[in-house]
Design a protein around this nucleic acid. Structure first.
Lengths: 121, 121
DNA sequence: ATCTCCTACAACCATCAGGTTGTAAGTTAG
DNA sequence: CTAACTTACAACCTGATGGTTGTAGGAGAT
């Protein structure tokens, strides 16, 4: 519960996939429009195999899907997984907002003098 | 160039820092309230040194700040960097929305048949 | 059929990540 | 002063990452 859902592994994959500039660029490109892996490979100063691996990482994270189209494989972006990443960030941030709300409440309605919000020793 | 501004390295650090369940949990905890590194270390089934490293990764990504308080070091979350991550996700997604808008525009006001962007219903 | 292009995958290499243990140093408590 | 606690960091190990080259097979084009 503290750490290690099944879902957590998926989150790991999504954020790890996004932690590389080339992969982020690939996501942006294939969201704009489908591309074959070769098309993508031509865009970056590295081998086809390297780009192929990047696409594999993105695919396993669900950020991208592949579909055979004749002899080439069209890669397209999956905005749903991006929105999932947004949701994960929100889950972290929500505790922060709750904390701000709590502080606001204390400031707005001070019951007794207790200006002590952290862990009191 | 196509890939690799200075900003991109920061994005790399932020997403990489988030690509670990323990670190995401630490962020959530310290957003809720300051904790010393030792406090954090007690929460997880690993050594103090390991948690100390995780905090270092989060700190270099700007997701967390440290502040000396006597003999201990209080760790607190930085919601601004989380919002920055949101912004980065948005930057990827915006091209997708633009594409949807473009398709909407075409569907709403069809000048001539111009099937050049792939999506033909 | 042959040639060319696209994809897939394996082997290899250097570096990084995430964990361990051990050690040293600063700070507070007794 | 001494003891306990907290932090910091170095050395080390194992596995994953990110890149390379090479090879092989499937699909279209001529």
């Amino acid at each position: 519960m503290v750490v290690g859902d099944v879902d957590a592994e998926h989150a790991d994959r999504v954020f790890h996939a996004l932690a590389d500039a080339t992969r982020r660029d690939i996501v942006a490109v294939v969201l704009r429009g489908e591309q074959s892996v070769s098309d993508l490979a031509r865009r970056y100063p590295m081998s086809f195999a390297a780009v192929h691996k990047h696409v594999g990482v993105l695919e396993r994270a669900g950020l991208v899907t592949k579909q055979r189209r004749g002899r080439e494989q069209r890669v397209r972006g999956n905005a749903d997984t991006l929105r999932e990443a947004h949701r994960l960030l929100d889950q972290l941030e929500v505790v922060w907002r709750q904390r701000l709300d709590r502080i606001d409440a204390i400031l707005a309605d001070p019951p007794e003098a207790e200006p002590n919000e952290g862990a009191s020793s």
